[in-house]
Amino acid sequence: MSDINVLTSQDVYEIIFRIFDVIKENEKYLTDLDAAIGDADHGINMTRGFKLATERLKELNPSSDVGTIFNTVGMALLETVGGAAGPLYGMWFMNMAQVVMGKSELDKKTIAEILEAGLKGVQDIGGGTQPGEKTMVDAIYPALEELKKAAEDESVSLLEALRRAAEAAEKGMKATIPMIAKRGRASYLGERSRGHQDPGATSSYLIIKTFYDYLKEKTGQS
């Protein structure tokens, strides 16, 4: 098994198509989670958004840089998702794009940097969202912490870094179950929002996990 140290723009391009597949497969799951504490449209909205994102990517020059790919995705999500996830995921991708404009390869450190910029976008647009408020941030924040640690440690491969990030995101997602929602539609429920997994944290975990799954498969093949 040879070690892959970077994600190329071609990898990122393919990962976006994978994310669309994963979101589509989980459309009902995400919408059901949202039905419990939100307005029952998260899966539908995210599928619509990533569908347009992949259509826009098909129109791009295949050798486009990673920044252009992320920016294209972000704009498509802003335009089509509709619910709160539109501005939040749109800013996530557009903020990531700003860090890697013109780049065609992402190493461990750069991946930590883009996720950090993406998280900042999500927090800003949400009005200063912090971990523990039952949102996307609860999945992204711990994943970023793991990536940052891995970026500093020479002995950790890119694949292992992404595995740890996905694992941390999953833990963060599950940790939203007992939380009381402090943001968005779910926050109107107060105590009654307890006992339900946050749909936004769930879609964020699925996206982060797709990066790992893609590289795991690619590493296995090479």
């Binding site: 449209d41 335009e79 089509t80 501005p87």
Partner: peptide, 15 residues
């Protein structure tokens, strides 16, 4: 108001 991609859907569009 609404989403251009789906006239039946409710939502908002920053653009």
């Amino acid at each position: 108001g609404g989403v251009a991609a789906d006239p039946k859907a409710l939502g908002t569009d920053p653009l």
